[in-house]
Design a protein around this nucleic acid. Structure first.
Lengths: 107, 107
DNA sequence: AAGAAGAGCAACCGAATTGTTGCCTTTTTA
DNA sequence: TAAAAAGGCAACAATTCGGTTGCTCTTCTT
């Protein structure tokens, strides 16, 4: 899974809400996770599949129900990607600052 | 702009490539940014608008050209959001660990 | 054994996204 | 001043998304 797919999966308010709920509980059943989102269970299930495909979430069937739990690894990859972007940005900025300080005064 | 919109904007390999390029340079012209992406300038321009709407990028017209530069603030918000999710996850995990340690041994 | 709970699957629909082509305008520059 | 460079804008097509309805299947529970 490319990191863009992880961002894409996070790029929807309903899926973000689901991830947020899961970050605060160990695991939940699909039906419970689908409540209070303003969409049907089947609609919510679609979203869950997107999250599962991006490996942000694991689905574990157990008898009649399916447990949904967060997989923090993809989350960490996404955060790491952004952190690296910011690092590049800072590196460039520092280099610029140094080069300006090295310049002779302009007047 | 909701944070979901920022993630959504990052959720595309072409836009991610653009952001990556911009993190390493101060600013670039639209035409330059559009090269080597496998799409037309107009296609690339669409992507840039998505990034601009999510405030990941600023567009600054100057005479004939338009300079594109990264705006690190949205990037930071996105990273902060993920960091908070991970924090929640850890808090929950720690609480669980403590409650297990507090339990009397099961045999 | 019957009903309820949890969930899967497929078809369908409207809206949004992604990318294209074609053409126009403005600003440089040779 | 004429050509080239940079870019804007609109229309169009294909595809994907987000959500729904309707039905079926399996597994608990009483």
């Amino acid at each position: 899974m490319a990191v863009a797919d992880v961002f894409r999966a996070l790029g929807d308010p309903i899926r973000l809400e689901m991830v947020q709920r899961l970050s605060r509980s160990r695991r939940q059943k699909i039906a419970a996770l689908s409540n209070g989102l303003g969409i049907t269970r089947q609609g919510a299930r679609r979203h869950l599949q997107v999250l599962a495909d991006a490996e942000l979430v694991r689905l574990e069937p157990s008898g009649r129900d399916v447990w949904v739990e967060l997989d923090p690894i993809s989350l960490d990859r996404a955060r790491g990607f952004i952190a690296e972007l910011e690092r590049q940005w800072d590196v460039r900025l520092e280099a610029l600052k140094r080069s300006i300080e090295g310049e002779p005064p302009s007047e």
